[in-house]
Nucleic acid binder design. Structure first.
Lengths: 242, 242
DNA sequence: GCCCTATATTTGGTCGGACCAATTTGGTCT
DNA sequence: AGACCAAATTGGTCCGACCAAATATAGGGC
């Protein structure tokens, strides 16, 4: 039995989503442990474990007299994944904020990796860029290669802080988009431009160029993803009207 | 009784630090709940709650047969604060990584804030910059003003993702440095240069300039902090030798 | 000695009940 | 309306019990 199937995890996930959907006002007292145990037909021990998890996420603060709901704004980054997974499609503004933030971190990582790479690592990166180029026509098929390239850069740059951030950013974000039927339509040549710049940056070990190429790519990706979400939202509301 | 004084929180903090100090190898089985209950002279329920917290941090994975330790590299960003608080002074490399990461996020926030600010908000920011200028001679005294400026920019830029990251980055980092006796010695004129650029950026609503000013400032801050940590480390080892 | 299988033991998951400290609520008085 | 107090509620913790799943051990075969 995987630990994510325990009663306490299920309870925590349900309550987490209720908080993220703002069913409770910030500062409000949360239902009591005894009430939650009755609601979920579980023991108070399981409820307490679930509340421990929510507290670690910064979503509640437990104290005698009753837990209090905290503002989502003061929560841990780990709530971002579930926040974006709410509903049929994610909030476009939140997605854009995610992409913008991810882009500056990715640009920094690319820059540092290109500067720090050994000759062997440069060869490895070039190889990964070439593999990515081989799938550049198909957005979905190129994702594993894109992830491999980012992972290699992250390893070479070796910044633990960015690594920890990425863990919580759920860099499988794109997979989630694809599952939800959101497919960004990048302009022709956009990936080619990125790959071309990356190749030059690797040949010259030019970190600035690598970083700038990443940032430019994400500017386009942000637009494309925003359009795709709006398109998907329209699809879903038309379907709902029928 | 504040919730942070509960037995389960104390147990979780001790175990968290042991994991962060690599007392256990990644993948290794963690001590059993019954053993931990005996070790801490507590009930198994309290231990379970502590383990729930550690799992939420991504430090362990609980499953029947025994919890397994996870690599710190795959943990949640929320472990960064405790990681930097280990020992008499933090790892200089980790601090530098933190500052570098924080600087790109701060630059992005400053840029977005200056671009997005209403006329009233621009006036507010200018006022905060002026207040910061009034304390620029004293690194410690200027921290509340610095924080107020960053907070205002963060509010104006209104990027939830960066907000969540900052929550976990423990932006009280500087306070922690001061407590540990680490005092960065910024070059004369460094703050003046930053403030001057910020004023121009606000007058012209020039986001790029604001972002660049922040980045430049952090380049200097990184150097100064690194020196200060090395100085402090030397102090402590001389003291230990006596 | 190595591998496989069966069994025993250990471990996590959960339950219910008990008790105490801290907080909240409701009633009374001024 | 505000202050105060008692009662009720709530979190914090403990204990013992039981079951499912994983791990360790023993025995047999090659």
């Amino acid at each position: 039995m995987s630990s994510s199937n325990t009663i306490s995890h299920e309870i925590a996930a349900i309550l987490r989503d209720e908080i993220l959907q703002q069913r409770y006002r910030s500062g409000e007292r949360f239902p009591s442990e005894r009430d939650l145990a009755a609601r979920f037909d579980a023991s108070r021990g399981a409820v307490r474990e679930a509340l421990s998890q929510l507290e670690q996420l910064g979503l509640i603060r437990t104290q005698p007299g009753g837990a209090r709901v905290q503002s989502v704004k003061s929560a841990s980054l780990a709530v971002l994944g579930p926040l974006m997974a709410l509903g049929d499609y994610p909030d476009p503004l939140l997605v854009d904020q995610f992409l913008q933030t991810f882009s500056v971190l990715t640009a920094m990582t690319a820059k540092n990796a290109v500067v720090a790479a050994s000759p062997e690592q440069l060869i490895q990166l070039k190889k990964l860029v070439a593999e990515l180029a081989g799938e550049a026509e198909d957005f979905e098929a190129m994702q594993p290669h894109w992830r491999a390239l980012l992972e290699a850069m992250s390893t070479i740059a070796d910044n633990l802080v960015v690594r920890l951030i990425s863990n919580d950013l759920k860099a499988q974000f794109v997979d989630q988009m694809i599952e939800l039927g959101i497919r960004p339509d990048l302009r022709a040549g956009s990936i080619d431009k990125l790959l071309s710049s990356l190749r030059v940056s690797l040949n010259n070990q030019d970190g600035e160029l690598a970083g700038q190429a990443m940032q430019d790519h994400f500017v386009e990706l942000r637009e494309a993803v925003g359009e795709a979400i709006r398109f998907r939202a329209d699809e879903l509301s038309i379907r709902a009207a029928n």
